[in-house]
Computed example of a mutant assay.
Amino acid sequence: MPSLFAQGLRLSKNALFGTFMGRATKLLGKPFKVLTIVNEVADKLADAKSKDNKFKQLFNSALTIVRLVRSYASGDYRELKTTTIISGLAVLLYVLAPVDLIPDFIPVVGWLDDLSLVSWFAGKFHTELAQFRAWEDRQAQPAASEPARGDRSLPAVAELGHS
């Protein structure tokens, strides 16, 4: 059996995924619609019950793609190529689609094509995902140059010669 990445690579070359790439390209200029899609995918993925294994890692990668596309659509993060964000959005559209190559209502197997595309994206764009996660980490940390409110070690405004 081929790896999930290999299956995802095969799916990424499929005409059906090409349709999602086209839709993603058209949607990219419509941030509200992109955010709606991202929220729907996040809700769909949040329902998954998985343990700490490779599938959980893939779900975490999928959620990273959701956050990446959301941050791009909101304008907070733009440090990536347009082709990367289009591919990420296309993967999310595919995951969200109720009817794809293997319909999601088929237990376990229905998610394999979705997960294989996530695996393909995570493998192909691993550098971009790592850069995005690093950016997220930097955003989560308070700026070192900003003093805490009420920090008495800093001079008061009047002490700086302002009145």
Rank of each mutant, 00 (worst) to 15 (best):
Pro155Asn: 12
Asp43Met: 10
Leu35Phe: 02
Arg78Met: 08
Ala134Thr: 12
Tyr72Val: 02
Val91Gln: 11
Leu115Met: 07
Asp104Ser: 08
Pro147Val: 09
Thr36Gly: 05
Val91Thr: 01
Glu128Val: 07
Phe105Gln: 00
Leu117Cys: 03
Phe132Leu: 09
Ile65Met: 09
Leu101Trp: 02
Val157Pro: 10
Val118Gln: 06
Thr84Ala: 10
Ala130Glu: 07
Glu159Asn: 01
Val34Cys: 06
Leu80Val: 08
Ile37Asp: 10
Leu92Pro: 00
Glu146Pro: 06
Leu58Gln: 06
Pro107Asp: 04
Gly123Pro: 12
Lys54Cys: 00
Asp100Phe: 10
Leu58Glu: 01
Thr82Met: 10
Ala143Ile: 15
Lys56Phe: 01
Glu40Gln: 01
Leu35Pro: 15
Asn14Val: 06
Ser12Ala: 05
Arg10Ala: 08
Val157Leu: 04
Ala130Pro: 02
Lys33Ser: 04
Glu40Ser: 12
Phe55Leu: 08
Phe59Ile: 06
Gln57Ser: 10
Pro147Arg: 07
Lys51Arg: 10
Ser3Ile: 07
Phe125Val: 14
Pro142Glu: 10
Asn53Trp: 02
Phe32Met: 13
Asp151Trp: 01
Val69Asp: 05
Trp135Ser: 14
Thr84Val: 15
Tyr94Ser: 06
Phe125Ile: 13
Pro147Asn: 05
Asn14Gly: 15
Asp114His: 06
Arg78Tyr: 04
Thr127Met: 14
Lys26Phe: 11
Ala130Gln: 03
Lys26His: 15
Arg70Asn: 15
Glu79Ile: 03
Pro103Asn: 05
Ala158Pro: 01
Arg152Pro: 01
Lys56Tyr: 02
Leu112Ser: 13
Leu11Thr: 03
Val38Glu: 03
Arg152Gln: 01
Lys49Gly: 11
Phe17Tyr: 12
Leu28Val: 00
Val99Tyr: 06
Arg152His: 04
Val38Arg: 03
Ser116Pro: 02
Ser71Ile: 12
Lys49Arg: 13
Ala6Asn: 10
Ala6Glu: 14
Asp151Leu: 01
Leu129Ile: 07
Val69Lys: 06
Pro98Thr: 11
Val157Ala: 06
Thr36Phe: 15
Ser153Phe: 10
Trp135Leu: 02
Leu27Asp: 09
Val118Phe: 09
Phe132Ile: 13
Gly75Lys: 04
Ser61Ile: 00
His162Ser: 13
Phe55Val: 14
Leu115Lys: 13
Ala140Gln: 05
Thr25His: 08
Leu112Lys: 01
Thr25Asp: 15
Thr127Ala: 09
Phe132Pro: 02
Lys81Gly: 15
Thr82Gln: 14
Asp47Thr: 12
Gly123Thr: 04
Arg138Phe: 04
Ala73Asp: 07
Asp113Phe: 03
Leu129Met: 13
Ala24Glu: 08
Phe55Cys: 10
Asp104Trp: 07
Lys124Leu: 00
Thr25Gly: 07
Asn14Tyr: 11
Ala156Pro: 01
Ala24Leu: 12
Ala158Phe: 00
Thr36Val: 15
Leu115Val: 02
Val99Arg: 08
Val38Leu: 05
Arg78Leu: 11
Lys44Ser: 09
Leu58Pro: 02
Met1Trp: 05
Thr82Asp: 05
Lys124Pro: 04
Lys49Leu: 04
Thr36Cys: 11
Ser145Thr: 09
Gly123Gln: 08
Pro107Leu: 02
Leu9Asn: 05
